[in-house]
Design a protein around this nucleic acid. Structure first.
Lengths: 148, 148
DNA sequence: CTGCATCCTCTAGTCGGTGGAGGATCAAGG
DNA sequence: CCTTGATCCTCCACCGACTAGAGGATGCAG
């Protein structure tokens, strides 16, 4: 268990130093031991935990969901119903997002298909945006606007 | 051209009152005329402009992109090359996002497929998150984590 | 004339970080 | 021993695109 400074942990996990400190501040990572000069020292367990967090974030889990998943991971004797429920919810959210983006894609394709090159007055893109009636209108977001 | 108070504009366009004021503050909507008691008054032109903005936001265009598109819409005599370029970029961004979410979906499906019901120690979800090697690893985000 | 809806400004919070200022400490080379 | 540059520390502000609430003024209907 060689002691790692924060920069080594950052490189090992490919998570930025500032992000590691941020995760500590919101309680996803425990407060680590410190050297006599107040520098954080980590170990292999921290590498695993941070890897877990990173992987979960890549999958789009919210921090609160990750908090619950870590709780469960810390207590392997508990039943894992909630872990499954959280993952199912995330899957549903991803499915919804994919469907929504598919609809957006359709309209963007229609808008750009013409590949106009004249004045903006006759631009298909501007025109489409001006008049919602020109498009199918089935691309309404289900919850807030789309963050692409 | 009946004068509309902000609440009417909000209902007509299905954009919240606070959001309208926000759009004004960042310069997407011009500062409207005011009544003697300092209330904003809008007209049909504002309905159209806000509709344009709303539609563009639904398609995932960033505010800065919308600013450019509005510029062009305000000057129909200019060439529309940039409008097309902006829309093409947005389409590419949406395509990338869809591809990425597809990969995430795959892993979430794998994780949840087993539908475990025992202790967390043997939970497929927890296990998958702990050990990135268990999944294909091809779901790396191309630019930052995924906002679902 | 009362009461409620709508409007105003201003501030702060959301989420998940990112970046910088200003200063302390460490490790290596001369 | 001294210097140099990398790394570390805390604290605070900022990003995008809003959203929510405080605290107060105004408009309109009964």
């Amino acid at each position: 268990m060689s002691p790692l400074p924060i920069g080594r942990l950052a490189k090992l996990t490919d998570v930025k130093v500032t992000t590691i400190r941020f995760y500590e501040s919101i309680g996803l990572l425990p407060e680590p031991l410190r050297t006599h000069s107040d520098r954080r020292i980590y170990d292999e367990g921290d590498v695993r935990r941070l890897g877990f967090i990173k992987h979960a974030r890549q999958l789009g889990f919210a921090v609160e969901a990750i908090r619950d998943l870590l709780e469960l991971s810390d207590h392997p004797e508990r039943v894992c119903d909630s872990a499954n429920a959280i993952a199912q919810e995330q899957l549903a959210a991803v499915d919804a997002k994919i469907a929504q983006l598919g609809a957006l894609r359709e309209e963007l394709v229609r808008m750009t298909a013409a590949g106009c090159s004249g004045p903006a007055a006759s631009c298909r893109v501007i025109e489409s945006l001006s008049d919602h009636g020109l498009c199918s209108g089935d691309h309404e977001p289900m919850a807030g606007p789309v963050s692409v």
